[in-house]
Measured scan of single mutants.
Amino acid sequence: SDLEELEKFAKTFKQRRIKLGFTQGDVGLAMGKLYGNDFSQTTISRFEALNLSFKNMCKLKPLLEKWLNDAESSP
């Protein structure tokens, strides 16, 4: 289901973010620079904790996926 997908992604996202050495705040700032939407550390934290509305989670997921792919592919 969509919800299970989101839960899986949130977990994976957190693990990969930590492995890359980024804080939640770093992610929020980087996404602001890249996509012009500033995200607070709290928002990233709540995403990882599945603590946002389903609609908000769905809106954030593609942006976070893109950020993660970019972060992992940059030298």
Rank of each mutant, 00 (worst) to 15 (best):
S1P: 05
D2E: 13
D2N: 07
L3R: 15
E5F: 07
E5K: 14
E5R: 12
E5S: 14
E5L: 11
E5W: 06
E5Y: 03
L6S: 05
F9V: 02
F9G: 03
K11H: 15
K11W: 02
T12N: 15
T12S: 08
R16V: 03
R17S: 04
R17Q: 02
R17D: 00
I18W: 03
I18D: 08
I18A: 09
I18T: 09
I18K: 10
I18M: 12
I18N: 06
I18P: 00
I18S: 08
I18G: 04
K19L: 15
K19D: 15
K19G: 12
L20K: 02
G21S: 02
G21V: 01
F22A: 15
T23S: 14
Q24W: 02
Q24C: 05
G25D: 02
D26V: 04
D26N: 05
G28V: 03
L29M: 15
L29I: 13
L29N: 09
L29T: 07
L29A: 14
L29H: 08
M31V: 02
M31C: 02
G32R: 15
Y35F: 05
G36S: 15
N37D: 14
N37G: 14
N37I: 10
N37P: 14
N37Q: 09
N37K: 11
F39S: 08
Q41P: 10
Q41S: 12
Q41E: 14
Q41C: 08
T42S: 05
I44E: 01
I44S: 00
I44R: 00
I44M: 03
I44H: 00
I44F: 01
I44G: 00
S45Q: 13
S45N: 12
S45T: 10
S45L: 06
S45H: 07
S45G: 10
S45R: 11
R46H: 10
R46I: 01
R46W: 02
R46K: 15
R46L: 09
R46T: 05
R46Q: 13
R46M: 12
R46P: 00
R46F: 03
F47T: 01
F47N: 00
F47L: 07
F47P: 00
F47M: 03
F47C: 00
F47A: 01
F47G: 00
E48L: 01
E48A: 01
E48H: 00
E48S: 00
E48R: 01
E48Q: 00
E48N: 00
E48D: 00
E48W: 00
E48V: 00
A49F: 03
A49K: 03
A49R: 10
L50A: 13
L50K: 09
L50D: 04
L50V: 11
L50W: 07
N51E: 08
N51M: 11
N51S: 14
N51T: 13
N51G: 12
N51C: 08
N51P: 00
L52R: 01
L52S: 04
L52Q: 04
L52D: 11
L52I: 05
L52V: 04
L52W: 04
L52C: 07
S53W: 00
F54E: 13
F54C: 08
F54R: 14
F54Y: 15
F54T: 13
F54I: 12
F54V: 11
K55N: 05
K55H: 06
K55A: 12
K55Y: 15
K55E: 13
K55D: 14
N56W: 13
N56F: 09
N56M: 14
N56S: 10
M57T: 04
M57C: 05
M57L: 11
M57S: 11
M57A: 11
M57Y: 02
M57I: 03
M57Q: 03
M57K: 02
M57V: 04
C58N: 12
C58P: 02
C58R: 12
C58T: 07
K59N: 11
K59C: 07
K59L: 12
K59S: 10
K59P: 01
L60C: 10
L60F: 07
L60P: 00
L60Q: 04
L60N: 03
L60G: 01
L60D: 02
L60M: 08
L60K: 07
K61S: 05
K61G: 04
K61E: 03
K61I: 06
K61Q: 11
K61V: 08
K61R: 11
K61F: 03
P62S: 05
P62A: 05
P62M: 04
P62F: 04
P62L: 05
P62D: 04
P62H: 11
L63V: 10
L63H: 13
L63T: 09
L63P: 07
L63M: 10
L63F: 04
L63Y: 05
L63G: 08
L63A: 14
L64W: 00
L64K: 00
L64G: 01
L64E: 00
L64R: 01
L64S: 01
L64F: 06
L64N: 01
E65C: 10
E65Y: 04
E65V: 07
E65M: 14
K66I: 06
K66G: 10
K66W: 05
K66D: 13
K66V: 08
K66Y: 06
K66H: 07
W67Q: 01
W67L: 04
W67M: 03
W67E: 01
L68R: 01
L68D: 01
L68V: 09
N69R: 12
N69G: 14
N69E: 12
N69Y: 07
N69I: 13
N69T: 14
D70Q: 12
D70H: 06
D70V: 07
A71H: 15
A71Q: 14
A71M: 11
A71K: 14
A71L: 13
A71Y: 03
A71I: 08
E72I: 04
E72S: 07
E72G: 07
S73D: 12
S73A: 11
S73T: 09
S73M: 07
S73I: 15
S73L: 08
S74M: 06
S74G: 07
S74C: 12
S74F: 07
S74R: 10
S74T: 10
P75M: 09
P75N: 08
